[in-house]
Design a binder for these strands. Sequence first.
DNA 1: AACTTTATCAACCGCCACGAT
DNA 2: TATCGTGGCGGTTGATAAAGT
Length: 364
Amino acid sequence: MGRHSCCLKQKLRKGLWSPEEDEKLFNHITRFGVGCWSSVPKQAGLQRCGKSCRLRWINYLRPDLKRGMFSQQEEDLIISLHELLGNRWAQIAAQLPGRTDNEIKNFWNSCLKKKLMKQGIDPATHKPHTEAYVKEENKTTETITTTSMQIPSITSQGSSFLISDSSYYENNGLSLTEPSREIFNSKSALDLDPLFCYDFQSGYNLPINNYQSQSQSQSQFGLNSSYGFTSMPSLTNSDHANVSITEFSDNNSASKISSLFMNDQVKESNSSNSSNMSTIYPSQMTTTMMENNNAGFSWEGSENKLDPLFQFQVNAIKSEEFGTSSWEEGHIQTQNSIDFSSYHPLTSLSEDLTEANFDAFHHI
DNA sequence: AACTTTATCAACCGCCACGAT
DNA sequence: TATCGTGGCGGTTGATAAAGT
């Protein structure tokens, strides 16, 4: 076992993805959603293994990805979470909306690790270098004293980076608080920031505003079309409640991590009535998806497969010809426009999207 | 300008867990 | 129970860009 059968097949492309491949994969997933990855390459016409497709989607094409530098707040959060979780990048990434485990792992290995070491902190333990280490250092470099190291004050309980107050999230854009949520609701998807559109021609994710102006001038998506992906501002507090504390091996970790999120949860329960945003929770989402599943695509176990990070918003103002067309796969009634923002926050790229009869790249 | 070193990050590899048969 | 297929994860590699000499 171990090696996937698909990887054993010859003639499969490897290496960097071309814009054409990206487009094929993107179109396929937006049409059919995320199902069985092993069948994706064939269905999408790609000479890749399913695993490679999955990785490309998760790490690059997924529309909710946040691009750009890590903020100081994200950086601190990664350090805190790493102290609690170690190299469990997927779990760490789950707490940073729009960031992938790969991205965080790279950031840790290339930046944060060195940063901590410079501060005299052992990145593995998050504690100042041990006495043994210091002695060893003294042996080899007697002229250098350990006092020259800048060791930040760290309690015996853990690093000073630990955040136990939900205000951290509220103040740093890592959570969508009620006021910000209202702003979000009142704005069109195209006004949100950061917003990116993937441009298959350039191979870059373009800020949506740029893309908007571009599409206005060049009608990339058709005369009356605009197409935007946004990383939704955050998880909602219901997501916070979904933090799986059972995965932590020790109770301290569990309580620490839960303290990061539970305050918001309480706050949310007090203020949820004021929210204009209709929220679909996983169970509802599954029901919705199953009810709408007319394309013959299997969503078995979709409840479990919902990616809590997957927040997808599309504003699709389709041209008339586009709006009335139907899927080749058929059996789907079309709608002229669907507001995906109502599927917040636990929206997978689902059949709902498929049902929107939405193929942006027809118009490229 | 040419070459070397370092940093970054996308992608691959190999392993594990789990469900289906 | 054993085997197989698949999804998911973390470690690692290799290509490229940027910085340094």
